[in-house]
Amino acid sequence: MKIIEIQDVVKKFGQQCALDGLSLSVEQGCTFGLLGPNGAGKTTLIRILTCIYQADGGTILFQGHPLTPTDVARIGYLPEERGLYKKMTVSEQAIYLARLRGLSRADAVSNLKKWFRKFEIDSWWNRRVEELSKGMQQKIQFIVTVVHQPDFLIFDEPFSGFDPINADLLKREILELKQRGATIILSTHNMASVEEICDDIALINHGRVLLEGGVNDVRRRFRKNQYTITLEGDTLPAGEFPEELFEILSHHTEGYHTILLLQATPDTGANALLDYFIHRHTVLSFNEVLPSMNDIFISSVQTQNKNH
């Protein structure tokens, strides 16, 4: 079932067209990577989803009905530009933001206490926000995003400004939310985390969807028929290799193993390659090399910009 369906959404800022008939949909319970270069329209799209902006055209369905501000209360949104009131104490601030998200004071306090214990930051409860480091403030911001237990979350560049430890903590929390069945839209430039966390992605550029689908599907779509094979022995096997089957792009040895990167010819399948090696060498492993999201991102955007 689709939780969000966006159809032909248009948003203009003066002469500039931020979203140019964009359509995409997000499955319930899916972790969705919203990718694109700076200025592609990601934040604009998110602000339309959170009803901060109104679209100039197109429709947005939330669980099958047109999106209303009441639905937004069920969304947890962590904006890219996120700040806190410097002069308030952490608890006052968190309670205030939780109440704005619709919790009663008592619920806000009990939920927040749970999260503070989980993040081991109980001792900050009465500290002023201005005393906290940036990383600490980010934790608070994450907590107030999820404090009302939303089943639909939007994170805009959640990893920016996090140190590796906190970024890892955040990643684990996102995965935990995912396991609990929440739908998550993740807008990020961190492609490694996209491969790790996301089920589906949409790559947008110039206000349109450039590429859409499951992470593995997309990577398969961009496969280049390359494989790695690990053979026993510390030297490259002597002799000629059949050019009609493959060519060796690179090779190196690790201990008593030799690892080859192969470019198969268009007609050659994985089995044919394996068949060739298995009769001549001891094959320890054999893998297809799929392009990384990073490579796909760069090549797709560059190709489109060139054609534009």
Partner: peptide, 14 residues
């Protein structure tokens, strides 16, 4: 300038 605005207007109407 605090950048708290977007956090707030995503929960309440401006």
């Amino acid at each position: 300038s605090n950048r708290i605005m977007e956090v707030i207007v995503s929960s309440v109407k401006p």
